[in-house]
Computed example of a mutant assay.
Amino acid sequence: MEENVVLEVAIEEAGYEAGDKRIAGITFEVRRGQLLGLIGPNGAGKSTTIKTLLGLLKHAKAKVTIGGENSSCAYVPEQPVFYEDLTLWEHLDLAAAAYGMPYESFQATAERLLAQFGMAHVRDDLPAGFSKGMKQKMMLMLGFLVQPDIYIVDEPFIGLDPRATKDFLRLLEEERLRGAGVLMSTHVLDTAEKICDSFVLISGGRMSAAGSLAEIRTAAGLAEGALFDCFDVLT
């Protein structure tokens, strides 16, 4: 594995039950500072790919390497996951403790994230009462808190208002400049086209194309085509 590669994925096949092959032949890598978009419509196999590389599927033939020996990974799921009886602040505190983050560093970073996402007023509230967008903001804050080597983000834009989306993208850019790699699954192709360095297009559980926007356009035969149009041709 090259030194600047933070995620290397080679999935021969994977599914949820024995003999149930949902995805196959998916290979890619993410480098430091790179934002790779895992692109495809709902049901294409994006979430199955992410679950496979996170080791959540028993029926998988895959090799996944995350950075070096001390590399860390943050996963931001599509569906928010939380403890019913812990406040937002307690969720942040628990995540920091799990990663061995010094309390002073945690406190300063958590306060900054609460302010950036406009969530300071609910820091002591239970997330069960949050809106879908607020729950998604909490998931993003938990990811950004620990500043890992690689972010794996599944459909981050669902439920986010324009301001929260802008805050998320700004923080993501800061993390990329720090050297973190990002794998982002999304079907919001117009946004992906603007922010991703390269793409893996998935359709029907298979890779249909991969590369930069220029390479995707060449593969689709559309010299000035939008990502949406290229995807339409290639799938």
Score class of each variant (00 low, 15 high):
residue 45 G to D: 08
residue 3 E to L: 14
residue 182 V to K: 05
residue 25 G to H: 07
residue 153 V to G: 07
residue 205 G to A: 11
residue 63 K to S: 14
residue 160 L to S: 03
residue 98 A to T: 13
residue 157 F to L: 10
residue 196 C to G: 11
residue 197 D to L: 04
residue 49 T to G: 05
residue 59 H to K: 11
residue 203 S to R: 15
residue 147 Q to A: 12
residue 212 S to F: 05
residue 221 G to H: 07
residue 56 L to Q: 13
residue 141 M to Q: 08
residue 129 G to E: 02
residue 158 I to L: 15
residue 235 T to G: 13
residue 31 R to L: 06
residue 147 Q to L: 08
residue 144 F to A: 04
residue 183 L to C: 06
residue 136 Q to I: 02
residue 226 A to R: 15
residue 198 S to M: 03
residue 150 I to H: 00
residue 3 E to K: 15
residue 137 K to G: 04
residue 213 L to W: 09
residue 6 V to Y: 01
residue 137 K to N: 09
residue 135 K to V: 07
residue 229 D to L: 02
residue 61 K to W: 07
residue 80 P to N: 06
residue 30 V to C: 03
residue 199 F to Q: 10
residue 181 G to T: 00
residue 189 L to C: 01
residue 123 R to F: 11
residue 50 I to M: 08
residue 138 M to S: 04
residue 91 H to P: 08
residue 190 D to P: 00
residue 99 Y to F: 15
residue 91 H to R: 08
residue 45 G to Q: 06
residue 214 A to Y: 06
residue 97 A to T: 06
residue 173 E to S: 13
residue 38 L to E: 05
residue 44 A to L: 03
residue 159 G to W: 08
residue 95 A to L: 08
residue 162 P to L: 05
residue 52 T to S: 09
residue 106 F to R: 12
residue 178 R to G: 11
residue 83 Y to N: 07
residue 123 R to L: 10
residue 215 E to C: 07
residue 50 I to A: 02
residue 87 T to S: 14
residue 9 V to K: 01
residue 8 E to A: 12
residue 229 D to Q: 10
residue 178 R to V: 08
residue 156 P to T: 02
residue 70 N to F: 13
residue 28 F to Y: 13
residue 67 G to V: 07
residue 97 A to P: 00
residue 203 S to T: 14
residue 36 L to T: 00
residue 198 S to C: 10
residue 48 T to D: 05
residue 2 E to I: 12
residue 23 I to R: 03
residue 79 Q to G: 12
residue 3 E to M: 13
residue 101 M to H: 01
residue 113 L to A: 01
residue 210 A to C: 13
residue 136 Q to Y: 02
residue 89 W to S: 13
residue 194 K to F: 05
residue 140 L to R: 03
residue 112 R to K: 15
residue 33 G to D: 00
residue 105 S to V: 14
residue 185 S to P: 12
residue 46 K to H: 06
residue 88 L to H: 04
residue 119 M to F: 03
residue 40 G to V: 03
residue 77 P to A: 04
residue 89 W to E: 13
residue 154 D to Y: 03
residue 139 M to N: 10
residue 218 T to G: 15
residue 156 P to V: 05
residue 139 M to K: 10
residue 31 R to H: 11
residue 142 L to F: 06
residue 94 L to P: 01
residue 181 G to R: 01
residue 214 A to L: 12
residue 134 M to W: 09
residue 233 V to C: 00
residue 228 F to W: 13
residue 58 K to V: 11
residue 98 A to R: 14
residue 186 T to F: 07
residue 9 V to I: 06
residue 197 D to V: 09
residue 111 E to C: 09
residue 68 G to C: 11
residue 193 E to D: 06
residue 103 Y to V: 14
